[in-house]
Computed example of a mutant assay.
Amino acid sequence: MKSCFITGASSGIGRALACHYAHNGWRVYAVARSEAALQELSLEHSTIVPMACDLTDSAALSTLVAEITADCPSLDLVILNAGTCIYVDAEQLQLSDFEQTFAINFFAIVALVPLLLPLLKAGQQSQLAIVSSLAHVFPFTKAEAYGASKAAVSYFTESLRVDWSGNGVDVCLIEPGFVDTPLTKKNEFDMPFLISSDEAVKRISQGIAQRRARIRFPKRLVWSLNVLRILPYRLRLVVARGMKP
């Protein structure tokens, strides 16, 4: 039986991914802070192992990986998906908003990667998939903290792929657009080309199965953002300002 490790598995894309892989016969180590949500998930799928953990607690992460190592000698797939979004007031920036956002979106990934590497290297043709966002491609309103954290995630993942070349672990960068999840439901602006979690999981799982280095979707948003990026800088700023609610 193949095994995978998924963070942020209590809701949204992470939950849908956990269900997808469990339904397809994988043993899934599902990680999130909400123990109740994970227990509910494990009742739906017998191959899901619920593992409640605060990803910002380094000691807890070490304990978590030790427990998995004792239960499973290797992992075929790791999906680091957990994330949060705090929109900021640019005229009253709070350092705590950035610290909280980076703690979950970026530093938790950096902390987990070396801990999970031995389990990945012990597998056969294993894969590490890290979820970023298309948000970092364009300056969206109030997204100073979120977009900056995702820019860090994308750069980290692409650089890691270079340095891991030849070590037996493939690295995949996942950059979704707007996906209908509890996180995006609080958005107060229009979300072009919004797709469902199930559709997102379909595209992610297919990309992982094809061992793609980067998965970006939906294509209409990717194309739109690429067009915006080649506009003169001043015109880009006009478009960005026009998106403010």
Rank of each mutant, 00 (worst) to 15 (best):
K121E: 15
G166C: 11
E91M: 14
P192F: 06
I204N: 11
F98N: 02
N226C: 06
A59V: 15
G14S: 13
E144I: 02
V227H: 11
P232G: 03
F107I: 12
L231W: 06
G12A: 03
S224N: 12
S126W: 12
P192I: 09
S10R: 07
L237A: 03
A213N: 07
Q92A: 14
A200I: 09
A135H: 00
G207M: 12
D180N: 14
L93I: 12
I104L: 10
L134M: 11
V179D: 06
S3V: 04
E175S: 12
P176I: 08
M191L: 15
H136V: 02
V113E: 04
A60F: 13
G123F: 08
V153A: 02
V201N: 11
W164T: 05
V88G: 03
G14I: 09
V239P: 07
G83P: 00
D170W: 02
P139Q: 04
Q124P: 11
G166K: 10
E144F: 00
L64V: 09
G83R: 04
F140H: 01
F193A: 13
L134W: 05
S159P: 01
R33D: 08
A66M: 15
S205T: 10
P139Y: 06
A60C: 09
V162R: 07
R15E: 09
A148P: 00
K121L: 15
L117Q: 15
D198R: 15
E35N: 13
D190M: 15
A135I: 04
W164K: 05
K244C: 14
T47L: 02
A135L: 00
K219D: 12
V239R: 06
T47V: 01
I86H: 02
Y155H: 05
H20I: 02
F102I: 06
V169N: 10
R229W: 01
I215P: 03
T141L: 10
R229G: 01
L119G: 07
P192E: 10
N167A: 04
